Computed example of a mutant assay.
Amino acid sequence: MSITQQYLLDAYRAHSLGEPVPPAPGTHDRRVVREWRGERRLRAVLAGRPVRHRFRDALGRWRRRPT
């Protein structure tokens, strides 16, 4: 069963029982990723490691690359 089929089944059940419909798949993805990133940064600080910005660091290396 796909995610969409499961969501539709859950929405149908909620509607028939008079309960609120669950959020659609992917609705809170940005918030989850933002919280996960914040948790990783917090753990790095608590462990005494520098906070890494992997994407930003990679872009900086790419821009400074000699041509």
Score class of each variant (00 low, 15 high):
60 G>A: 07
12 Y>M: 12
34 R>W: 07
32 V>H: 09
37 R>W: 13
67 T>E: 15
14 A>W: 02
16 S>E: 09
45 V>T: 08
43 R>P: 00
59 L>S: 07
6 Q>V: 13
56 R>A: 10
31 R>A: 15
8 L>F: 05
38 G>P: 01
30 R>C: 13
13 R>V: 08
18 G>T: 01
21 V>R: 12
53 H>F: 03
14 A>G: 04
62 W>L: 10
43 R>S: 04
15 H>W: 08
67 T>M: 14
6 Q>Y: 11
49 R>N: 04
50 P>N: 01
56 R>D: 04
34 R>N: 09
47 A>V: 00
57 D>T: 04
22 P>M: 03
26 G>D: 03
18 G>P: 01
34 R>M: 12
42 L>T: 04
6 Q>D: 15
12 Y>N: 09
9 L>Q: 14
16 S>A: 05
32 V>Q: 09
33 V>I: 15
56 R>M: 03
32 V>I: 15
41 R>P: 02
39 E>Q: 11
36 W>Q: 13
16 S>G: 04
62 W>Y: 10
4 T>Y: 08
41 R>H: 06
38 G>T: 05
16 S>M: 12
19 E>N: 00
52 R>C: 00
47 A>D: 01
67 T>W: 12
6 Q>P: 07
14 A>H: 01
51 V>I: 02
66 P>L: 03
27 T>A: 14
6 Q>R: 15
29 D>N: 12
59 L>Q: 05
44 A>V: 03
16 S>Y: 08
40 R>C: 04
15 H>C: 09
43 R>G: 00
60 G>W: 02
31 R>I: 14
13 R>S: 04
67 T>G: 09
32 V>T: 14
63 R>I: 12
32 V>N: 09
28 H>I: 13
67 T>D: 13
55 F>Q: 05
14 A>F: 01
6 Q>G: 15
64 R>N: 11
31 R>T: 15
5 Q>V: 05
46 L>N: 07
13 R>M: 11
40 R>P: 00
42 L>H: 07
67 T>K: 11
32 V>Y: 10
56 R>P: 00
63 R>N: 12
37 R>L: 15
45 V>E: 06
58 A>L: 02
19 E>H: 01
49 R>M: 02
9 L>C: 14
37 R>T: 13
47 A>K: 01
58 A>W: 05
26 G>Q: 05
55 F>P: 00
